[in-house]
Simulated assay, not measured.
Amino acid sequence: MSDPSLTIDNILAPELTLCRVPASSKKRVLEFIAERIHFQDETLSDTQIFSNLVSRERLGSTGIGEGIAIPHCRLEGLDRVIGVLMTLEEAVDFDAIDNQPVDLVFALVVPKEATSEHLELLSQLAERFNDNAFCTALRQCEDAGTLYQRMTNRNH
């Protein structure tokens, strides 16, 4: 049975919600995600997170279309799920399924053994990002505080 408390709202921290990040490439986006997670928890290796995210991208792009990407990976020794939400200053090529550049990114880093939780969260994200009005509202945010509120309070 998956953990009912495991929702997008519970795994996203304000410190890991970033608005208008200047990233020039997919690689830079993934590096930035790894650096931010390490910055928030120094026990986690940014090199390891980056390398795991890149390995996952090699299996197939996590760009799900419509300018959205959900990069994700598992991490040895992690005891919780970490989410990172970013809007990008300029859309970057992410090898997405529809070849559209990406400007909305939600990264998930999960414990190595958390399979069902991982899939549950991915489906929650996909469902939310399926809502065009919701995505537009996220893209229009000017600051991280607003972005965090819009992602976690679904008042629409």
Rank of each mutant, 00 (worst) to 15 (best):
S55D: 13
A96Y: 04
A114S: 15
I37H: 00
E35R: 12
F129K: 01
K27M: 03
L59H: 10
L78Q: 03
N155Y: 14
L119T: 09
L6K: 12
G145Y: 10
E127P: 00
F39K: 15
P4T: 06
L147R: 10
R58L: 15
R20K: 08
A137F: 09
L75W: 05
E113S: 15
T115R: 15
V92E: 13
Q140W: 00
T43R: 08
P101R: 02
Q124V: 05
V81G: 10
Q100T: 05
L75F: 00
D93N: 15
I11F: 07
I82G: 06
Q40K: 12
T62S: 15
H118Q: 11
D143Y: 10
N10R: 09
V102N: 12
L104M: 06
K26I: 01
H118N: 14
N99C: 08
L119K: 08
V81F: 11
V109Q: 04
N99A: 11
K26R: 09
V110E: 07
D131K: 01
R128Q: 10
N153K: 14
R20G: 07
D46P: 07
E35F: 01
R20F: 00
S45M: 02
P111F: 02
V102G: 14
V92C: 13
M1C: 12
V105T: 12
R56S: 13
E76K: 12
L147V: 05
L121G: 10
V92A: 11
Q149T: 13
L147S: 06
E113C: 11
N99K: 07
P71Y: 02
I97M: 08
G67L: 05
N99E: 14
F39P: 02
S5R: 13
N99Y: 01
S24A: 10
L44P: 07
G67C: 06
N10W: 06
F134E: 01
F50A: 07
A34P: 04
S45R: 03
I11T: 04
D131N: 11
P101T: 07
R80S: 12
C135P: 00
L147P: 04
T43K: 11
L119P: 11
A114L: 06
T62D: 13
A126Y: 04
D98H: 03
I82V: 15
M86A: 03
R150K: 15
D9W: 06
T7Q: 08
C141Y: 09
C141N: 05
P71G: 04
F39S: 12
V29P: 04
E31W: 02
V102K: 09
L53Y: 08
T87R: 06
V84M: 10
T47K: 14
A34I: 03
S51C: 11
P22N: 07
N52L: 08
P4C: 05
G63R: 00
H156G: 14
V92D: 13
L6R: 06
T43F: 03
Q140F: 06
A133P: 01
D143A: 07
R154C: 07
R128L: 13
I49F: 02
S116D: 12
L53N: 07
P101Q: 03
H72S: 10
L119I: 11
Y148I: 09
S61P: 13
